[in-house]
């Protein structure tokens, strides 16, 4: 469902490759956890997957659609939850969802129905007529999550989605991610919370200094079967490149 071939990216004002020759293949019906220390290249990879950044080299395919050749079609089947909360503070929650739904070409009735459904799930119905600027960190995160799923994307990409969520909402999100993948969709998410990755993901990838240093199922990554994911993560990222 998501394919990256030799993708590299160096920021304009930097000489260091933020992502270096990344090749990755993520299947339909899979929850893929993307791990890495701060500055490893997780967010850059996610931004390239969502079309926010353009790779310097390499190819990205979303459900067989080349992102560079047909960005509109590729973006249409993606839903994106960013790691920052820079959403339009001077809009009301409902106005923002209406805006996003319109951009994804959703019919009015379906949009109404989806907004009501997800707002209820994340306990945000009451807050929707208020300005986003008055929302707490967690509420903005919930709004971003709703905005990313209302159009029913085949590929759901989340950058640090659990940051700021209360336990109830975090649980709901994990359940939703599982249900999403079980319906044949793909969930790609980055996180620092190793416990969550351990519990939720079907496969994980570890990135360090822009290079993919490990990608497999949890069981296979654990070399001797006894180490915890946290130990593995610390070992891999401190050893440097290892695949």
């Amino acid at each position: 469902m998501i394919k990256l071939y030799n993708v590299s990216k160096t920021y304009a004002k930097s000489t260091v490759k933020a992502v270096d020759d990344l090749t990755l293949d993520i299947n339909a019906g899979e929850i893929f956890g993307f791990l890495g220390p701060n500055g490893a290249g997780k967010s850059t990879t996610i931004k390239m997957l969502t079309g926010v950044l353009t790779p310097d080299s390499g190819t990205i395919e979303i459900d067989g659609v080349n992102l560079a050749d047909n960005p509109i079609a590729a973006k249409s089947i993606e839903g994106f939850v960013p790691d920052n909360h820079e959403i339009y503070d001077t809009l009301k929650g409902i106005e923002y969802l209406n805006f996003i739904g319109t951009m994804y070409g959703m019919p009015t009735e379906l949009l109404k129905q989806k907004i009501a459904e997800y707002a209820a799930l994340f306990d945000l119905t009451e807050a929707l007529p208020n300005m986003i600027g008055s929302y707490s960190h967690g509420m903005k995160q919930k709004l971003s999550i709703i905005a990313a799923v209302i159009h029913d994307p085949k590929v759901w990409i989340l950058d640090e989605p659990l940051t700021g969520l209360d336990p109830q909402s975090a649980y709901q999100l994990k359940q939703l991610m599982r249900a999403w993948a079980d319906r044949g969709n793909t969930v790609f998410f980055s996180s620092h919370v190793i416990d969550v990755v351990e519990k939720v993901c079907d496969r994980i990838g570890i990135i360090n200094h822009g290079k993919l240093v490990a990608v497999d199922t949890l069981e296979n990554i654990r070399a001797d079967g006894k180490l915890s994911l946290e130990d593995m993560f610390l070992t891999i990222t401190s050893d440097g490149e290892r695949k």
Binding site: I94, L97, N98, G101, T102, G105, M106, T108, P129, N130
Partner: peptide, 20 residues
């Protein structure tokens, strides 16, 4: 002041991309 009191209502409508 940004919090509305009383019943909260809102409307949802797809008005087209440029208009929206």
């Amino acid at each position: 002041s940004s919090e509305r009191r009383g019943k909260k209502t809102y409307s949802v409508k797809n008005r087209g991309v440029v208009r929206e």
